[in-house]
Design a protein around this nucleic acid. Structure first.
Lengths: 133, 133
DNA sequence: CTAAATGCAAAATCTTTGCAGCCTC
DNA sequence: GAGGCTGCAAAGATTTTGCATTTAG
């Protein structure tokens, strides 16, 4: 017999397409308001509730990943970008993906005290090139 | 002439003493509810608003530091613990301070792309000794 | 056509604030 | 005593949910 819990068919709407496009086009994770504002350029009248609902679906999907920065800002990025970390500019606040991982502990390492490391999250802070001049 | 904005004299109350004692006694950063529950053992009737108000003062003081984990949990620890990072157990959720810094970038380093690094936040995840057995 | 998706507004959660009484100093 | 401090409950801020309507398939 079939599974009794069928996932409801997922529909294609302008709103959802706009939201995904916006996230894909970014070089780093975006805040909900960034997503709302950018997606509204494509689809005026888009409501914040739709953004939240779509993000929730995309999270369950695994399409999107939530990134909470040490400052508490919640952002969203495409998943499947591979292991990477983030850099936030202290002046303009923008967050970009880093392709380096400057963390020297490996999964499986056991630290003094008996803590077994399985993963890590790192955020670097500093000044981005645009804000340097 | 004198400064026109005098800081109000800070009073010693049982509530505040209990809150600070609780934070000092911890081996890692505590959530607001942890602080509330533990401080209520010393001072029953303590209200959540007092905890928030006291934490705010202690933050302004510089006595206490706010730690927001990648999961979004907000916690508080004594400041002046020096440079350190955190380890969170994926089973029990407890967070402890680490005395190691496994991050290989130094302040002042410039990454490819021109990003100047000034600081970093790192959280390790894994299993704590108590949850290993 | 049917049922999922949307937008609005109300609800829920976490944190802050207003206020009357309480407690340091 | 005077004024800061507390606890309660109401107010804010952010995220979630209910509902009537719209719209994809």
């Amino acid at each position: 017999m079939m599974s009794s819990s069928q996932a409801a068919p997922r529909r294609h709407t302008r709103q959802r397409e706009a939201i995904v496009r916006v996230i894909q086009a970014s070089r780093g994770p975006l805040a909900v308001n960034d997503i709302l504002e950018r997606a509204q350029r494509e689809h005026d009248g888009l409501g914040i509730a739709t953004v939240y609902r779509t993000l929730k679906l995309l999270l369950e999907d695994g399409t999107v990943r939530q990134v909470i920065l040490p400052s508490g800002e919640t952002r969203y990025e495409m998943s499947g970008l591979g292991h990477h970390h983030h850099f936030q500019c202290r002046r303009c606040g923008e967050v970009v993906d880093l392709d380096v991982c400057p963390v020297a502990v490996l999964t499986g390492t056991t630290l003094a005290g008996g803590y077994t490391v399985e993963g890590h999250e790192l955020t670097l802070y500093g000044v981005c090139p645009s804000c340097q001049e």
